[in-house]
């Protein structure tokens, strides 16, 4: 969907950005879920929460590598850290991401050394997990916020994208934890409230996406809306987001308690759905038919 240098004018954000935003969402969601497990769940779930924090740090680290790969001058990536533009959300985002990654890793180390005792978190861990949750929330919203700032590309301008990305971040982060749980964790049973949460997250996303589709079809950008809903990008929505990301995971919650196989299927499908959602929105908002003033 993105080619040479001439195409970069129309499609400046390509696959590395899509993957970075997906990984950032997974990291943010995994961190939020891990913090919740540490605060609320019984101690048996703390091991999974510890893995989740490591996953957050690793996810944001690898996501940043994709972001660096997307630079046209990757050897200059350090400039984003050294130079600061307070008006630029990317400038803030990079610093939030760095702090988030370091705090997740630090908290994982604390937990790894046995920071939690008798299920009660020490003050230092309460503080770091509180900060991680706050930064995780920011990172869940941040990619959408960056897209929303683009005056040139009105299809990214909808404020619905931010809560949609956040809900998807929690959904994919939770799925990543389930994947860890199934692949090697000690707790292989379904988490308490897991089914209900699955349903709530799908319903919230469906509602937000439905409103976003209304926004798409009413903004005067008919060609772009057609491309998104029944054109080139439509499979990412109907197959990727709705079938794989929502319907199959919902189906795994039906009937008796899910075993490892169903949990694995659910987690993989949700992760693919998260990637599909970002692909659909990021590529959908770019292109000649999605530029401001192409239709009036």
């Amino acid at each position: 969907m993105s080619g040479g240098h001439a195409d970069l004018i129309l499609t400046p954000f390509g696959w590395p950005v899509v993957i970075y935003m997906t990984l950032a969402g997974i990291s943010a969601g995994a961190a939020l879920t891990s913090c919740w497990l540490l605060w609320k769940a019984e101690e048996g779930w703390h091991r999974l929460a510890r893995h989740g924090l490591l996953l957050s740090a690793a996810g944001i680290f690898f996501g940043s590598l994709f972001l660096i790969a997307d630079l046209e001058a990757p050897s200059r990536f350090w400039m984003i850290l050294v130079y600061f533009n307070p008006a630029s959300w990317i400038s803030w985002g990079v610093r939030i991401i760095t702090l988030f990654g370091m705090l997740s890793l630090f908290t994982w180390l604390l937990l790894h050394r046995g920071g939690a005792t008798n299920g009660e978190l020490p003050t230092s861990l309460k503080l770091t997990t509180g900060l991680i949750a706050f930064l995780g929330l920011a990172i869940g919203l941040y990619p959408a916020w960056v897209l929303m700032q683009s005056v040139a590309r009105p299809l990214w301008g909808s404020p619905l994208i931010a809560p949609l990305f956040l809900a998807s971040a929690v959904h994919t982060g939770l799925a990543a934890l389930v994947l860890i749980q199934v692949m090697g964790g000690s707790e292989r049973r379904e988490a308490p409230g897991g089914r209900r949460l699955e349903g709530v997250l799908v319903v919230v996303q469906a509602l937000l996406l439905g409103l976003y589709v209304l926004f798409l079809t009413s903004g005067g950008y008919d060609a772009a809306a057609a491309r998104l809903l029944h054109g080139e990008l439509a499979p990412w929505l109907w197959v990727g987001v709705i079938l794989l990301g929502w319907l199959i995971p919902l189906a795994t919650t039906l009937g008796s308690a899910a075993g490892s196989g169903r949990l694995l299927l659910r987690a993989v499908c949700v992760l693919v759905g998260g990637l599909a959602l970002r692909t659909w929105i990021i590529f959908g908002g770019q292109g000649a038919d999605a530029l401001i003033s192409t239709l009036r």
Binding site: H5, L8, I9, L71, E72, A73, M79, Q149, A152, S293
Partner: peptide, 24 residues
């Protein structure tokens, strides 16, 4: 100071900014 992150390219409503293929 440019690192070629294309944020300006994405932001410009006039598609007036491009990535120079020789300098990146």
């Amino acid at each position: 100071r440019c690192c070629g992150n294309k944020a300006c390219v994405a932001a410009c409503p006039y598609q007036a900014i491009f990535i120079n293929s020789e300098t990146g």
